[in-house]
Each structure stands twice: as C-alpha cells, then as structure tokens.
Design a protein around this nucleic acid. Structure first.
Length: 866
RNA sequence: GGAGGUAUAGCUCAGCUGGUUAGAGCGUUUGCUUGACGUGCAAAAGGUCGCAGGUUCGAAUCCUGCUACCUUCACCA
C-alpha cells in the first residue's frame, strides 16, 4: 500500500468488480423484506450536475445501508425523455449543423434525429452516475419512452378519459411563444420586473364621456371585448351598460359590472381581454363576452389586430402607445413593478392565451392524494414539506397536459373527419368507431410530467401483472429536492393512488439544493456551476460523496466549496493510513476474532464502537445522514486514530498484541462507512485478512451487549484526560517533547493509573511514571497538576519559570472557583433540587464535590510554590 | 398578500425529544521527523447562541412579538 490513497487507481476497477459480481441486482425474494427506491430520472440527454450528485449520493447511502441490513434492496435507474428540453437541444443542433428547422425535416424525420441523439447521449448520464459509485440495478434501466413504459402512459390516459377525468377544451393556458407550446401552471416561473402602467382613455359612444383604464400590456387592448367596473363604484355606475369605442380598433364594447374589479386599484376600471388574461377569461365567461384572440403562436399580432398585424408583441406595444399618444388618449404613464411569468425552459415571457388543449380534471384526483398524506401513508422528511404539498394540492387547478411538441408521448386521441367524433383508444385506429369515417390522430404530445408521474409503477411493469410489481411496489423512499415537489412528487402521489390504488412510496426524503461558495444557485448563465466529474477526477468519488453527505440536514440547502472536499479527501487519506498501520502490524496469527482477554483500552474502544454502531444506525433510520456521517468522522479520526492506535502501539509485536482488536474495529468501521464512501472501504476491506467477500454484501454491524464495558470505558477516559492535562501543562510551560520528564501520580485509584502508566510514557513524554497513594512521594520542586481522581507531579529542573507556574495555578484556581460557584448556585436553588430529576441533581452534586477536591489540591500546590 | 425556512467562533455549518465547561471543518497562533498518515501529530486563541418578552427549578433548544436575509404559492388589470 502506498502512503497516499489514490482514488483514480481504485474506483473504476472496484465498480467493475461490483457489476461483475452482480451485487447491484435485486430480485423478488419472499424471505427478505423489499427496500425499493426509484431514481428521479435525469434527462436522457443531460449532464451530471451537483444536484444529481447530491440526490444520487443520498439514495446510494440508503440503498447500500438497507442492502447490508439484509433487505432486498432495489435501486431502479433510468432516464426521462424530457420533452421540451430534449427537443430544444436537438433543434439547436439541427440549426447549427444543418441550418434546418424541425419543420424542414418533418415530424418523422425529426423524431428519428431525436432518437439518434438519444442513442448517442443516453449513456452519458448513466456512465456519469456510475462514476459516483451508484449501486443501481442497471439490468432494470428504464426510459420513459420505452415501449413498455409508453403502454403504461397510454393506459393511464385512456383510463382517465374513460372516467371523465381528462377532457379537451378551449381555455386559457400559458403559452411559450419561443417553444411554441402550451405550458402547465407549474412550468411558469414568475419574477418581478420593472414595467409601466399605461392609463388609456376609452371614449364612450355618442357622448363626451370616457373611461380611463390602466394596463401593463397595452397590446392586448386589440382583443378587448369589455371594460369592467365594480358594481358598487359610484364613479362609474352611470356608465354600466353603456357602450365604449375601443380606440385604434374602433370596436364597440360594453361597460360591465363585476365584483372581480378592485375599486382602489388603478383607475377602478379594467379593460377585459378574455382571450389573453386568465381573470378576464373568467369575467368573459360570466358575462358572455366574445373572445378575440389577437396573437399568433409566435406572439406576433394576427389579423384581428388590424394595422398591427405581423408586428411582434413588444413592437406592437410600442406602436400602440405612440398611436394612442398621438390621438391624445394616453393619459399618463406610471412606473410599475409586477410579476411576469417566464417559460421555465427557455425564459421567454409567457403569454396567457385561450387555446384548445387537453386537461386533467384535478379535484377528484386531489382528494385521495391529500388523504394518503394526511393519514400518514406517505410521510415527508422533514415533516414540514407535507404542508407545502397539502397547500398546493388543495388549491390545484386543472392540469393542461397537451404540448405542441413532437418529442413525447403522442396523445391517443383520434378525430373523425366525417362526424367529428373524438375517439380515445388503447389501440391505434384508422376508422371512426361511430361512423366508420377516416380519422386523424391528435398531433400533440403529453406533458413530460404526465409520464414521469407514473415512474414508480410504470418502471415495475404496470399495468401488466407481474412478480416485480407485486414485490417491490409500493416503493420505500423517494429522494428528491424540494424544488420538484409540485412538478413530480405531487403528481406521482395522485397518479399512484388513482391507478394502482396504493401510494407510490411511503417516505419522501427531501433535500435542499447545492449552492456555490457564496450561496448562489449554480446556473449556466452565472457560470458558477461546479462539475461533479471534475471533483471526482481531482479528489475521488468518495470525497465528493462524503462532502455532500456531511453537514447535509434534510430539506436544507448547502454550500459547496472545494476546501470542504479537500477535508473529505484528507479524511479518506486518514483512513487509508490508519488501515496501512493496522495491516503493517499483522502477523500470521491474526484471525480478526476478538481474543479472550481484553485490556482496559480494548474494552474502551469496543464500547465506543458499540455506541457508534447504535448512533450511525439510528441516524440512518431517521434520515439524518449528515449526523451519521459526522459521528463516523469523529470516531474514526479522534477515537480510533488519535487514541486507540496510539494506545495499541506499546503492545504491538509482543505477546498479547492487539492486532485482532485493530482488525475487528477497523472492519466494523469500514462497514459502517461503506454506504458513504464505498470505494475506499471496499479497497481496504479487500486487504483485511480472512474475508473474501465484497464489503457491500457484508452484514451491517450491530450493537453487542457483551462488548459493552462502561466501567472500563470510564477508566480509559480518565487516563485520556490526564494525558491531555499533562500535554497541556508541558505546552504551557514550553517543555519541548524532546525533554522527557518523570511523573508522579498520586491517586486512590492506583488500578486505573497503573494501567495508564505506559500511555503516559508514550503519549505524554514521560521518562518514568510512579503511581502511588502515598503523598510522601510527592517530589520537591514539581509542577503540579490536578485532574479528576489524581494529582500529577512533574519534577522540574531550573528551566521552569516559577512565576509562570504560579500564574498557571492561579488561573486553574479561578476556573475551579467559577465552576463551584455555578454548581452551588444551582444546588442552592430550592426549585432545582425539588423539581429537577434526582439523577440530574446528583450529577450536579458530584461535580461540585469533584471541583472542591481539585480546588483544594490546586491550592496546596500553590502554597508549595509561594 | 398567504405559507415556510434561516439567524450559533473570522468563514461554512452541527447542536435530535430543554439539564455538556456550547461543538466540528476551514482559517489563525505556538510547538513537533512521537514505530500509519505533514492530505499528519500536539497545544491554544476565538462565541452576551439576531433583538425583546414569556413558559420553566433550568432555554442556543419550547412559545409570542420584532428585525434581517432567503424559499415558495397566489396575484391588482
């Protein structure tokens, strides 16, 4: 073994070994409990980013832990076809490479290109997941456009249609002019923008009167079909029912009264454009207003816009303002900040417009989906996210699921050209079932999220009855970020409940997002993204995983910076070297089994290990992975390396060598650490004697009662703190390590300190240690040290500064006096003594006693010097 | 406007169901070739736990209010 751990020489080889060993595979096994996670499928053409790295790391930790616990652990991987994202990407390539648009190619040819693209790049993200060490069952890799998966999508669509939960209607939707498709409400991001509030005069017909309306989108006035005022607004009541002349267009529009209008906002009069605003749309329905759509799909003005036809929406806006101004109808312009919706894929400002689309009726689906969370069949970790979920689900609107794209699941609706009947069918049809006429298939495809909502069961073979589905579904845990709760989690829940009658998972483990060192979101436009693959290249996958797991508390964002990865890398190196030490000190008698006779320090480390096993396990069960990994770090570095290895040194190579204990403890440590750092633990484990198995299929360590030695552990702690005190004394007195010194330990507990004597030599630079009860043996001219249970004297030559020693002891004295005061205040508080648990009171008393004793000794020491 | 989060050492963050002398990593200072590790060892400095109340024998921890920052949903045209 080299002195430095080199992940590059290890990781790929080990991963290959796991794959060849078939350790990732899961299969229904009635003797075992299933544990299932379905991966949140990354975009098939995507690239691994830090968000994935975190998500996959957390999943792999859980999967590896449960696998070692003896459960049948299935981590089902796959990718998402990601409709808009992928289509945009391929269109871009088409444009730059061939200078063509998708329309130049036509639907079929274009889809061929997308599939080619998918074949070419689909593996990329999968291989990147492997780099992380992900223990997915690759034999079960799924893709949302697989034939089998598509069958599930179609089944769901048809069945919802048959139940009346899917309908086609002309309603207001969010339209992205750039992607040229409808979007659902969740696919629109709102951001505050500086805009204007234009006040425009609408003259009344046959009168000098007029109404001033205020708008942020003047171009939509071309489609106005009314002006609305509040019914109680006296300023306008005489105008209600009158007719206005819509400027520029010269259309006659009525003044209507509707409660939707707020009297105190703007001018109290609202122009109503039913075809271009969701609220106006509703008003229009209530008042039977005409819908005049004035825009084309690319957000240019259409023929209803008169002279503005062909202009882009913003050009039209400018021109309209200019024209109104010229006509003297522009009353005033106010600065106004308002929320503007943008397409979550391309950032283009979306345009609300009426359009004929397919919708999922949400109310009937939301009820049961709320119920499974309310009754705890689906639990969120942390709990608070169930509120966010519930709130969304309670206010959910119908879901627009049709997209004007080519890449995706084509909607299985067929329109009869003859009788107009719409057939929605599981099988493709060529003739109208009603009249036999020719049918034309719907051009639109489904929202990507419509298909990914089926992921937990469609990947397991649903709707076909089969063993996998029966065994692994419902899945156990879903691991994902909070940013995707509405998009995906909520939709999986109602889909699962509706189609399988079961919740798709029992637990939703939510994590935050990974931010850059300054706390900013990582983004392409900022260029502040950190490439996980680069980190792996530089520091190793284990270091990356460890960094992501450390300090990760559920639901909270984390900052990523390379200093932390370096710390993780150093930790890996530490383990590597501790293992080297253990391995270099083995002889041929090593068995890895614990010996009959255990020394004090052996019992101490075994007790600590027991505790560690319990804590790591408990925290993993609670999804507190950050705490679990922190405990491991502390134990390995502080307890095992800095203390136990040091304590073991004097006995090595002799009779009673602790080699088997070292191997035993190391072996358990590696197992506990394996879910977090799979590569290095596997590599080291392979060097340990007497095991030929992969660590990933070893049994998870368990708390062993017979290895719990609280008394001995306490004794060792006493020795440890005495050693620390001596080191501290020496450092303060500037005694260099090269200068060994004799120690006299005066104590009633000679047993403990006699056992500790060799360690003082080794770890506190003692030349010789005398342990005695006899105060007569206290040497002249000695520095004195008071620790719990003992006084330690260190004879000094002339080198030590007496003044300094007096000052040090005075400091000690003051500290102890403070402590005693604190304890006394507590104990003299009647309420405390009466009401606090007796154990706590007793503890406080003991503390007081201990401090008093120590104080006495410190004072005696002082007296000696003065 | 609704809902939620965060505020602890110079920086980044732990601190679970109230009782430790409030912790870690990084950074800083000092010393060290101590039988694996300088990606290391030893020692240390550094905190009125955002502010103000309250509950309690006891609050960084629970409750209320305030302030600051951040999410998110809904939007007033």
């Amino acid at each position: 073994m080299e002195t430095k751990y080199n992940p590059k020489q290890v990781e790929d080889r080990i991963y290959k070994g796991w794959e060849e060993g078939g350790y990732f595979r899961a299969a229904p096994n009635p003797d075992k409990k299933p544990f299932t996670i379905v991966i949140p499928p990354p975009n098939v053409t995507g690239q691994l980013h830090m968000g994935h790295a975190l998500d996959e790391t957390l999943q792999d930790i859980l999967i590896r832990y449960h696998r070692m616990k003896g459960e049948e652990a299935l981590w089902l991987p796959g990718t998402d076809h990601a409709g808009i994202a992928t289509q945009i990407k391929v269109e871009e390539v088409l444009r730059t490479e061939d200078g063509k648009s998708r329309h130049d190619l036509g639907r079929e040819k274009f889809l061929e290109r997308v599939w080619e693209w998918k074949e070419k790049y689909g593996d990329r993200i999968i291989n990147q997941l492997k780099k992380l060490g992900s223990s997915c069952d690759w034999d079960r890799e799924r893709f949302t456009m697989d034939e089998r998966y598509s069958k599930a999508v179609r089944e769901v669509f048809v069945s919802l249609y048959e139940k009346g939960l899917i309908y086609r209607g002309n309603r207001i939707i969010n339209w992205c002019p750039s992607c040229a498709t409808a979007l659902s409400d969740t696919e629109v991001d709102y951001s505050e923008q500086e805009g204007h509030f234009w006040h425009i005069k609408y003259p009344a017909k046959d009168s000098d009167e007029y109404v001033i309306v205020a708008t942020t989108r003047p171009e939509t006035m071309l489609g106005d079909t009314a002006v609305a005022v509040h019914p109680d607004d006296e300023r306008y009541s005489h105008l209600v029912g009158k007719t206005l002349i819509l400027p520029l267009v010269n259309r006659e529009i009525p003044v209507i009264a509707d409660e939707y209008v707020e009297k105190d906002f703007g001018t109290g009069a609202v122009k109503i454009t039913p075809a271009h605003d969701p609220n106006d749309f509703e008003v229009g329905l209530r008042h039977n207003l005409e819908q005049v759509k004035v825009m084309n799909d690319d957000a240019t003005i259409n023929s209803f816009g008169g002279k503005y036809e062909g202009m882009d929406r913003y050009a039209a806006r400018k021109q309209i303002i200019a024209d109104l101004s010229e006509l003297g109808l522009l009353v005033k312009i106010e600065e106004h900040t308002h929320n503007v919706g943008q397409c979550y894929r391309c950032g283009t400002t979306v345009e609300p417009i009426t359009s004929k689309q397919w919708f999922v009726k949400m109310k009937p689906l939301a009820g049961p989906a709320l119920e499974v969370v309310k009754n705890g069949r689906v639990k969120f970790v942390p709990e608070r996210f169930s509120k966010i979920y519930t709130n969304w689900m309670e206010n959910v609107h119908d879901w627009c699921v049709s997209r004007q794209l080519w890449w995706g699941h084509r909607i299985p609706a067929f329109y009869c050209e003859k009788c107009g009947y719409t057939a929605v069918s599981r099988e493709d049809i060529t003739a109208c079932p009603k009249c036999g006429g020719a049918v034309r298939r719907e051009e639109d495809v489904l929202d990507t999220w419509f298909s990914s909502a089926l992921w937990p069961f469609a990947t397991l073979g649903w709707p076909d009855k089969n063993e996998d589905y029966d065994y692994f579904y419902p899945t156990s845990v879903l691991v994902t970020g909070y940013d995707i709760i509405f998009f995906w989690v909520a939709r999986m829940v109602f889909s699962g409940v509706e189609h399988t009658g079961k919740e798709p998972f029992h637990t939703v483990f939510i994590h935050g997002i990974v931010r850059d060192g300054q706390g900013r979101k990582m983004s392409k436009s900022l260029g502040n993204g950190i490439d996980p693959l680069e980190i792996i290249e530089l520091y190793g996958a284990d270091a990356l995983r460890f960094t992501l797991a450390t300090g990760n508390s559920p639901g909270n964002d984390m900052r990523f910076y390379t200093e932390r990865v370096e710390a993780s890398r150093n930790f890996a190196n530490k383990i590597w070297n501790a293992s080297r030490f253990v391995l270099l000190n083995l002889d041929d008698k090593v068995s890895g089994k614990l010996p009959e006779v255990l020394e004090l320090e052996d019992k101490w480390i075994l007790t600590k290990l027991n505790l560690l096993i319990r804590e790591v396990t408990e925290n993993l069960e609670k999804y507190e992975l950050g705490i679990a990994v922190q405990k491991l770090y502390d134990f390995i570095w502080d307890e095992f390396c800095d203390w136990y290895i040091e304590l073991s040194k004097p006995r090595l190579g002799k009779e009673g060598s602790p080699q088997n204990i070292l191997v035993y403890v190391l072996s358990d440590i590696l197992k506990l650490l394996h879910p977090f750092m799979p590569f290095i633990t596997e590599e080291i484990y392979s060097y340990l004697p007497n095991n030929s198995r992969s660590i990933m299929i070893e049994k998870w360590p368990e708390f062993k009662k017979e290895l719990d030695f609280p008394a001995e552990a306490g004794q060792t702690e006493l020795i440890k703190s005495a050693i620390k005190a001596v080191r501290n004394l020496r450092a303060e007195m500037n005694v260099p390590p090269s200068k060994k010194a004799r120690l006299v330990v005066v104590t009633d507990d000679t047993d403990t300190f006699t056992k500790g004597a060799p360690f003082f030599k080794k770890l506190a630079w003692a030349s010789d240690v005398t342990v005695t009860v006899d105060r007569g043996e206290i040497p002249e001219n000695a520095l004195s040290l008071v620790v719990e249970g003992a006084e330690i004297f260190m004879p000094h030559g002339d080198l030590v500064d007496i003044e300094k020693e007096i000052a040090r002891l005075r400091g000690e004295e003051a500290r102890l006096i403070d402590e005693i005061k604190r304890v006394d205040t507590k104990l003299s508080n009647e309420g405390f003594v009466k009401k606090a648990p007796p154990a706590v009171v007793e503890q406080e008393r003991e503390k007081g006693e201990k401090y008093r004793e120590m104080l006495e000794k410190v004072r005696a020491g002082l007296k000696n010097l003065i």
